[in-house]
Amino acid sequence: MNCQEALDLLYEFIDKETSDIDTQQIQAHLKKCGDCFQKYRLESSIQEFIHAKLADDKPAASLERLKSKVSARLDQVDREECGPKSGSPYRLAFITVAAAALLVLMIGGAGIITDFITHTSTYAPLEQAHLAQAHLAQAHLAQVENSSGTETEFAAESVISLMLEQNSYELRPNLGEFVLISGKTEEILGVEMNHLTYSSSNAIVSVFIVPADKFSIPDDLLDTKIVRGDLELFDHNCPACRLVFHVIGSIVVITATSDQSIELLDFIPGKLVA
């Protein structure tokens, strides 16, 4: 190994990332070449120096305090996940949700039913609407596959142009393997929402769109906030049905799915246009 070859691998050698053969050859070269050895020593002592300084640099914040903050946040996650709350104002909704869940089970939604029956969250009506639609959509899918699909496409397109016109929100008709298959208006949680359905070959995602002045993010989700560009996301993740609330401009876009294999945070159905 010559000087250039040894120096090219110097950082990797210091980081212990060189192969056994390279390591032996570099060691042999450093033994006989004073110039390279000096460079090696310089680089590795700077490396050690920086590591030591950084590792010494303890944050002023108390770790104990941070631990208790984290613990409180975990408690919150534990609570929000589906524990039955007696006297909940959403009792009625809860019962219908269970009924919808049964439907899903009947059509092969499987898996989620046990968790879902005990589920009484604030967002239950949204989940119920999603599940009912998922049920319909699955029944529809067989039809859509066998027909030209013009009817559902037409419905979706009208919602796309409505959203663009009213909110400057440009919905994407295709999202990866998901295709927008239908759209309707529906009253959920006392507000009229546009409810769109995206479908892949084996999963359904609902998208609800509601004016921001008519719908506020539930309090218990406020600290799940994630900011991505001009988009604020709030995440409700429980085993029964995941909901992600997107606050964007003057609308709130809510995505919902009971399929846990879909990363809903990455499912962004549209964007604001100037």
Partner: peptide, 24 residues
């Protein structure tokens, strides 16, 4: 996580938030 978060975010407040988000 905290010491790396501080170096990534360059301030301890954001770092604490990042660590909490990470655990949640």
């Amino acid at each position: 996580l905290m010491r790396t978060a501080v170096r990534m975010a360059k301030n301890e407040n954001d770092a604490e938030d990042i660590v909490q988000e990470t655990y949640v």
